[in-house]
Design a protein around this nucleic acid. Structure first.
Lengths: 162, 162
DNA sequence: ATCCTTGTTAGGAATCATTCTTATATAGCA
DNA sequence: TGCTATATAAGAATGATTCCTAACAAGGAT
């Protein structure tokens, strides 16, 4: 999904944010992928066009964008935080092997709040559903090599084990 | 929920784990609370009876218990990991203010997998639902003091801001 | 009951994503 | 064009967790 500089400008202005080249580039990189990248992956991506950018700026920018609601964080692995510019209600498929995160758009999942048995004294504002399992690539890889794992391409975590 | 040494022994043996006093104490502390404590909170608790225990042992033990399926991790905040000895399928209420985590037992939420629109090539093994909002204590606190937050008692995170 | 083997524990050092600090630069308004 | 507040870059600091290693102990075998 391509996003124009004008769209970015409009969204930033609507939140009272200054429109700087670095900030726009970070948001653009995130908005144009569905891979739920880490801050470091975004840094790598943006550094192609802005070689002098610091990781710090990426962290600061993501924090700012999160605070105004333009990005969301996800962190299913107690691992590096991953980011998502899709802030509409949606849910996730999470591969237990390669750790890829896929979006699910299923309106019916947005309705479960009405039916769930939630204590009356808890005020619910939002909810989220995660499905855990194996993506098609990892299923095929497992069929081939039942032992090893995480060898095909997706954005992955580097550090820490499952 | 009190758990006997015999139950602990049985569960450990069933997973081929040695039954050591430290390990039993850690599991007991976790199994007897619903507060989803951090590793450090468990360390503090167990240290009352085992003053020489090291944080390391708590981490190692929790990792071991997780690997055999006796405990689960949750990490909604990209913060310290929190643990749960309730490994049956259940879902969570999460307070955005004090960060308390409450269990929901609602069988109907276990059924949503059948109805959700999930790509056929993704093999789902489990799923989980989280509801975000404000617990009753925080609602009251906000009514009193609309500005500040997180002043009432629950197990909290110490570091990093929301 | 004692010995052995192997998994467990304690302690200290190391890791590394993230945050903090500070000085410089720049967006955007007057 | 100049001002002011905010953003950026660079480096240092933080802190939960992991790594490493030596001493220890559970529990099966003798």
């Amino acid at each position: 999904m391509i996003i124009s500089q004008n769209d970015i400008r409009t969204r930033f202005k609507a939140q009272g944010l200054k429109v700087t080249p670095q900030r726009a580039a970070i948001y653009k990189a995130l908005a144009e992928t569905t891979s739920h990248p880490t801050a470091e992956a975004l840094f790598q991506q943006v550094a192609k066009d802005y070689p002098m950018i610091s990781p710090n700026t990426v962290y600061y920018t993501l924090s700012t964008l999160k605070n105004v609601g333009l990005v969301k964080e996800v962190n299913y692995w107690h691992d590096r935080t991953r980011f998502d510019a899709n802030v509409t209600p949606h849910h996730h498929l999470i591969c237990l092997d390669c750790r890829a995160i896929f979006d699910i758009e299923d309106r019916s999942l947005n309705q479960i709040r009405q039916k769930a048995k939630i204590p009356k004294d808890f005020q619910v504002l939002s909810h989220q559903v995660e499905f855990y399992g194996y993506c098609s690539s990892c299923q095929k890889a497992q069929a081939r090599q039942p032992s090893s794992s995480s060898r095909h391409s997706h954005i992955q975590s580097t550090r820490r084990k499952p």
